Amino acid sequence: MINDIFSLLIEKRTFFLSLLTEHLFISLVSILIALAAGLVLGVFISEYQKVLNTCWGLSTLFIRFLPYRCWAF
């Protein structure tokens, strides 16, 4: 069983390497987008303190209820 898996990985290594590089690229892009959005939001909140409570409430809402909605799929 394990030998079959390793032989498949060796035989189709170019396919699996292309999938790996595609996954790493997508992950890097998503991290950069999150970083940019977080920096912009952080600067905006530091400049306008009145927005802090609204952003805090929205982030709490997403943290508490979004994971449960993802489990439904």
Rank of each mutant, 00 (worst) to 15 (best):
M1Q: 07
M1P: 03
M1F: 10
M1T: 08
I2E: 06
I2T: 03
N3I: 06
N3Q: 15
N3K: 12
N3M: 08
D4S: 06
I5F: 12
F6H: 13
F6P: 01
S7E: 10
S7A: 14
L8F: 05
I10R: 09
I10L: 13
E11Y: 07
K12R: 11
R13M: 14
R13E: 14
R13G: 04
T14E: 13
T14R: 15
F15H: 09
F15G: 01
F15A: 02
F16T: 00
S18P: 03
S18L: 11
S18V: 08
L19G: 06
L19Y: 10
L19A: 03
L19I: 12
L20D: 05
T21Y: 13
E22W: 10
E22A: 15
E22Q: 12
H23M: 12
H23R: 15
L24D: 03
L24N: 08
F25H: 13
I26H: 00
I26T: 00
S27W: 00
L28C: 00
V29W: 05
V29P: 02
S30K: 01
S30D: 12
S30Q: 00
I31M: 07
I31Y: 10
L32M: 07
L32R: 05
L32P: 03
L32C: 05
I33F: 09
I33H: 01
I33K: 10
A36H: 07
A36M: 15
A37P: 03
G38L: 08
L39S: 13
L39V: 13
L39M: 09
L41A: 09
L41S: 08
L41I: 10
G42A: 02
V43S: 03
V43L: 08
F44S: 15
I45F: 04
S46M: 10
Y48W: 04
Q49Y: 05
Q49P: 05
V51G: 05
L52D: 14
N53C: 07
T54V: 14
T54E: 06
T54P: 02
C55L: 09
C55G: 13
W56F: 04
W56Y: 00
W56I: 07
G57M: 15
G57E: 11
G57P: 05
G57W: 12
L58P: 01
S59T: 13
T60E: 15
L61Q: 00
F62G: 09
I63W: 11
I63F: 09
I63R: 13
I63P: 00
F65S: 12
F65D: 09
F65E: 11
L66S: 04
L66P: 02
L66R: 02
L66A: 10
L66G: 03
P67Y: 00
P67D: 01
P67G: 02
Y68F: 10
Y68I: 10
R69N: 09
W71E: 15
W71H: 06
F73C: 09
